[in-house]
């Protein structure tokens, strides 16, 4: 499957930081995007990858109480909820965008989260491939 991962810089494993960002994790095609904080993530940024025909988006944010920008992780959660609602409205199921608000920056956290997202996406059905961005 094809996934985008938006991750707070504090959650990206040291060995995956740019320019060492992997393009495959656990058999999935990945685009890992480092954010200064998950608060940077507007709702539209969560939707635009789906215009390229990807299957799902994973947001790796910090624990809400540990967010260094105070409200960043909380705002990211609200935007994930909004973007999921839009996807549901257009018939793509509820849950193609998964947010994990945890501490730590270990690879297994990403792998576990991707497995969970893959399972959710499989329930929702495959995405039509091919970029449609105009």
């Amino acid at each position: 499957m094809d996934f985008y991962i938006f991750a707070c810089q504090h959650r990206i494993p040291q060995e995956w930081r740019p320019p060492l960002t992997p393009d495959r994790i656990g058999g999935n095609s990945i685009r890992l995007i480092q954010l200064p904080c998950s608060a940077k993530l507007g709702t539209v940024f969560l939707l635009r990858p789906f215009e390229k025909g990807i299957d799902g988006v994973l947001v790796m944010a910090c624990e809400e109480k540990a967010c260094r920008s105070l409200e960043g992780s909380r705002r990211a959660r609200a935007r994930v909820r909004e973007a999921n609602a839009v996807l549901k409205e257009i018939g793509m199921g509820d849950g193609r965008i998964l947010i994990k608000q945890e501490s730590g920056n270990q690879q297994p956290d990403f792998i576990r989260a991707l497995e969970e997202l893959s399972a959710r996406v499989s329930e929702s059905g495959a995405t039509q491939k091919g970029s449609i961005t105009q």
Binding site: V44, L47, F50, E51, E82, V86, L87, G91, I132, T133
Partner: peptide, 14 residues
Amino acid sequence: VGILASALRIAAHR
């Protein structure tokens, strides 16, 4: 506008 435009592109493509 950004959200709606994106949703319309995805929906039209589907």
